[in-house]
């Protein structure tokens, strides 16, 4: 169970007023659920994900994970408590190979077969990748899939993916959806996916829409998606239907 209470996040800007990125977010997500968070660019979705992982500190409010207040805990404490996060922008590491990072994610030194298992789930042929360094020689799509594989390798109860579909082609998109389903089944965990991708929203148990730092819709995909598609004008969020 993840509970977020009265959570706000403000940043300093050039004006005398502070800019409010998140404003009084209240959220409760139970185990075994697949939640998609969507909304316009700059609405605060990624900030919320980073606050849950401990990368950003909220200016107000509390976060409870499995009954414990984790608001003031560090990133690694949250990781050990069972929270995992796939970054929107994968990080480059000179000298660090794919198998090294997957091993760190898994918490033990992986044998090739284990690394292969994780990579194949994101549509990568392991033999071509396990000894590659995570540097500029990998494409954005490859780095993104490896980032997802790292989270798959973790044994946690809360998986947060920040726009995992970026750089993922149609074939691996099917795999990606299967990855989410497997993770929920594995530990009766929670999968939170920040996404603009309609097909992810469609398969989610719950879709939360954030606009201007506030939750403006929260319901089943059947309830929320029609509003996204047809309730907003063309200058607004999701005025255009994206099809695959």
């Amino acid at each position: 169970m993840l509970e977020i209470k009265n959570l706000s996040f403000q940043v300093e800007n050039d004006t005398p007023q502070q800019k409010e990125i998140l404003n009084n977010i209240n959220l409760s997500i139970s185990a075994g659920s697949f939640v998609a968070i969507t909304g316009p660019n700059g609405s605060g979705k990624s900030t919320l994900a980073k606050i849950i992982m401990g990368i950003e500190k909220p200016t107000a409010g509390q976060i409870f994970f499995e009954g414990k207040d984790i608001t003031n805990t560090s990133i690694d404490e949250r990781a050990k408590a069972g929270i995992g996060f796939a970054f929107q922008q994968p990080v480059h590491f000179k000298g660090m190979r794919v198998i090294d990072l997957l091993s760190l994610a898994a918490g033990h030194k992986l044998v090739v077969e284990e690394a292969c298992n994780y990579l194949s789930q994101v549509g990568l042929c392991a033999i071509n990748y396990i000894y590659r360094e995570l540097d500029n020689s990998l494409s954005g799509g490859e780095l993104k899939r490896i980032e997802i594989a790292m989270l798959v390798a973790r044994n946690v109860n809360l998986y947060i993916f920040d726009e995992p579909e970026a750089g993922i082609d149609l074939w691996s998109f099917q795999n990606l959806i299967q990855v989410f389903k497997n993770l929920i089944a594995k530990n009766n965990g929670i999968v939170i996916v920040i996404s603009h991708q309609e097909r992810i929203l469609e398969i989610a148990d719950r879709v939360i829409v954030i606009e201007e730092g506030q939750i403006v819709q929260d319901g089943s995909s059947k309830e929320v998606i029609p509003n996204l598609m047809f309730g907003l004008d063309s200058c607004h969020f999701y005025g255009r239907r994206v099809s695959f």
Binding site: M53, I55, S74, I75, D76, A79, K80, G84, F85, F87, V91, L101, L104, A105, G107, M150, R154
Partner: peptide, 8 residues
């Protein structure tokens, strides 16, 4: 940050 998010 990335490695800390893996538990280090």
């Amino acid at each position: 940050t990335k490695l800390m998010s893996l538990g280090l």
